[in-house]
Design a protein around this nucleic acid. Structure first.
Lengths: 213, 213
DNA sequence: CTTTTGCACATTGTATACAATATACAAATT
DNA sequence: AATTTGTATATTGTATACAATGTGCAAAAG
């Protein structure tokens, strides 16, 4: 049986690509006819996709004025990362100590992060690492919220690395978390995981402030 | 200047009313033409509203099979309430001790809860109380997530009270939380607030199990 | 009698058409 | 010259039309 991915979800992916590649700029109006022509689809499924991205906090809209990519702001960063830290910590609590198999995979991904120089891949691998760590969490709603926050933070990370050609690696922190999990110290791992989620904040805020000058 | 509420948001409200009034039953297919005729609008904005409610976890859809109201399940309850507890606690932490003005209002709402017998109003007042308590929280994303979880839990509460003509009051717990806040004991209030959010779980699960027999 | 196949119909998915509003610019007014 | 007002155009909001897929039932095959 073929899954037959819906147009809407394809459009969301395409728009997301345009956004992280910087093809769509913040505050620029996203005109529906233009995007529909670009992606070769009609306005109906496009609007559905736009509404979902709005829902996810990536784009914003004003009634009868249309959609535009949300402006970067320091406030976003101070909202997103601490919230991510809380939610992911909670998810790790609920997950408990991972199985040996998962721990091995976590080590493997971390090794890949260490070895790659592609910033884009580092961001992707970092997300995979985070999601794998909490993959035993059975609270689907919690996981969904975390994934939304990933998207929101990734927009900043991609934009940052677009200008700096680099992105922070948290290999050592990951190692530390794994170590504590291997020793059965879940609570300590949870604390470290929370801290790990906060590590990028200052860098991003500094970059943002220097950029706006 | 007139705000001119969009059709989509009006439709969402109308659908929500139909849902909590039990006019739409779980698992029943929600046919688009039928609902569009009922609400006297076209399918386009209706679909947009349906998609948003799906996003909020109220209704579910299968590709090319359409939307239906999500079935009640014990798993939902064990997901929603503990998550709410965490998020609201976090929001209270961020809010800090409320001002005297807010504390007075909290006491006032709590008094209203004590004096009313209308279950529907109790649910509404309880939500107002919770949101007011954390109203000083500046993390908009966090508040948005909390509101979504309120909707999800309220669906259960409305369904419960539809069959039992009653709903639990947490007046005493609210009083206790206020008391600690007045004494400047934020951390204790946060703990109590978390517990307050978990108080309905057993009742709802028992009801759900007895219902399905 | 049971199972399968094909067809009519119901329903969702997508595209287009039409309506309402916002925007930009020119002409008129002060 | 600055401000306002009117009008053409661009753009979003909503409705309708068409396409693709799913569903149910009857007739045929075994």
């Amino acid at each position: 049986m073929i899954a037959h991915e819906t147009l809407k979800s394809q459009i969301i992916k395409a728009l997301w690509q345009l956004i992280i590649e910087g093809k769509i700029l913040p505050n620029q109006p996203m005109r529906e006819v233009h995007l529909a022509e670009l992606l070769n689809i009609s306005r109906t499924p496009l609007r559905e996709a736009l509404q979902q991205l709005e829902w996810e906090g990536i784009i914003v809209s004003e009634s009868r004025k249309g959609y535009r990519l949300a402006q970067f702001s320091e406030n976003d960063i101070t909202e997103i990362y601490p919230l991510r830290a809380r939610l992911e910590s909670f998810a790790l609590e609920l997950s408990g100590i991972p199985t040996q198999k998962v721990l091995d995979e976590l080590i493997e991904i971390n090794q890949k992060i260490l070895n790659t120089t592609s910033s884009k891949q580092i961001v992707e691998l970092d997300e995979r690492w985070h999601l794998l760590l909490i993959s035993n969490c059975s609270n689907e709603r919690l996981l969904k919220m975390i994934k939304i926050l990933h998207r929101q933070s990734q927009r900043y990370e991609y934009a940052y690395m677009e200008m700096n050609n680099t992105v922070e690696k948290s290999v050592t922190q990951h190692e530390n978390i794994i170590l504590h999990l291997q020793n059965g110290q879940l609570h300590q791992a949870v604390e470290l995981f929370a801290k790990n989620n906060l590590v990028g904040i200052d860098t991003l805020i500094n970059w943002l402030n220097s950029k706006s000058k």
